[in-house]
Write a protein that binds this DNA or RNA. Structure first.
Lengths: 264, 264
DNA sequence: CCAGAATGTTCCAATATGTGGAACCGAGTT
DNA sequence: AACTCGGTTCCACATATTGGAACATTCTGG
């Protein structure tokens, strides 16, 4: 097994690209990665990999702990923190998420589409007890999350095709959509109704309603959702929130264009 | 003005190091950075910088938005999220932070020393209203934060000297320590008492008590703190929490060695 | 509406950097 | 003592990066 190549066929960004591939392999691995583990994952020659890893360590992107395991470094946190704090889309959406949370009482998510994944940009949690931002920055597949399907529903043509072509369907629960036809049908339904549901398709016992946020000018496809545990959130409640979620998504979309308009 | 060189004198990590310097310059900048802004900051030739930026964009570490401004990319979030989720130190400390929060009712921080900065690894917030992880990943100076001074107090000899030598003292409030002598005296006091106070030294109106967590085996210097607004948290309350904070820090330190011991 | 400036992008020979096979080292095992 | 395994170092060779300069594309003010 080798590291998945970046989408850009053309070969990539030289040295930096290779370094990032190694970094990602280590950072997204399940457990600690020793030198040999990375070696077999990356398929690079030993000497080369060794230098790449040293460089990453020197840069603080990775750290080499006592028992020779490479772990993600803290510099990533620092950079990401700045990235998050200044993210324009997140800032615009924040007050709307708060409002949506107040009205529903359940957890609210904001996620943006990136390749075949949804990256969660923000969340407003219902109960404080659960570890807070466990989710922010998390990447989940598009085809089995409310936010993911909502975001996809805003796309069409080649942009959509490219994404669909790359999806590898995996069954997470009995309700997971597992083929292209199913997903296309679902997207069509979402386009008509303006909302996407996730009825325990990704995690058993978790349901959500989501709606698409789309901004062609910024090439942004995203989604907002309200999520809750199935025992507390029945189908009818989910349906009841649909208009609210849809309106929130629309309001964010509108606010985005309003901000874009003036400045140019 | 040029980008600050990394601490490692020896020159650095070649291509990757340069790319990271550019990335950091953009990511940590105040506002949006256009090409020319980065150019003047980085002091690199135009052609070179242009390619570096393109590569960073292709890798998803930066994004180039509609009005030609470079902003930090979402890939950073994804990587950092994984980094945070799997951080061993954070996981060990988490339950202790929760407990400390329950007992004090105020915001609890966990920060680790990295160079001359404290990077906040986790926090348990007092009121949910305030934006949650606004702080996680944030970097603050060592010499004017409770956690920073606590962490420093665990160091000595050349390790400490190197850090002290690099500090550029800046006055944030009337109470900020602004010279080496003052800091050394403070550290001595902290070593004796086992706790560090921040009496509005960084932000006016914000006070905190902190205690050091230190693990020589993992080369880890860190700190735990309880923070609150001055109007609610008087000196005596701060003093009252001192033993609690000290014990929490000790418990985390102990737990760390306990985990390290067995596994080797 | 045009000249001039400022900004961003592309090119390419020279060269600094990264590459990777192979040798080396040290710790554990048989 | 010989062997394997995980990790590190070396160095001739290949290649990616460099950076100066030319080019393209907005802005800007007269």
């Amino acid at each position: 097994m080798t590291i998945r190549q970046r989408e850009d066929e053309d070969g990539g960004t030289g040295t930096l690209g290779k370094a990032m591939a190694v970094l990602e392999a280590v950072a997204l691995a399940e457990g600690p990665m020793r030198f040999t583990d990375v070696l077999s994952l990356s398929g690079q020659p030993r000497g080369t990999l060794h230098r790449q890893l040293s460089h990453l360590v020197q840069e603080g992107l990775l750290e080499l702990n006592a028992d020779h395991a490479y772990v993600p470094g803290l510099r990533l946190l620092k950079l990401a923190s700045a990235s998050w704090a200044r993210n324009e889309f997140r800032m615009v959406a924040a007050p709307f998420l708060e409002a949506l949370h107040r009205e529903t009482g359940e957890t609210v998510h904001l996620g943006v589409l990136r390749g075949r994944e949804i990256i969660y940009l923000d969340k407003v949690e219902s109960r404080q007890a659960v570890r807070m931002n466990s989710q922010i920055g998390n990447a989940s597949p598009v085809y089995c999350t409310g936010v993911g399907k909502a975001a996809l529903s805003a796309l069409s043509g080649p942009a959509l095709d490219t994404i669909l072509a790359g999806i590898e369907y995996r069954r997470f629960t009995p309700a997971t959509i597992t083929d292209r036809a199913g997903l296309l049908a679902e997207l069509e339904a979402i386009r008509r109704s303006g909302v996407a549901f996730d009825r325990e398709e990704h995690e058993p016992g978790i349901r959500c309603v989501a709606a698409p946020v789309f901004d062609a000018e910024r090439a942004l496809a995203a989604g907002v959702s309200v999520t809750g545990p199935a025992y507390r959130v029945g189908e009818e409640r989910l349906d009841g929130w649909a208009p609210l979620v849809r309106d929130t998504a629309r309001a964010i979309t509108a606010e985005l264009s309003a901000r874009l308009g003036p400045q140019r």
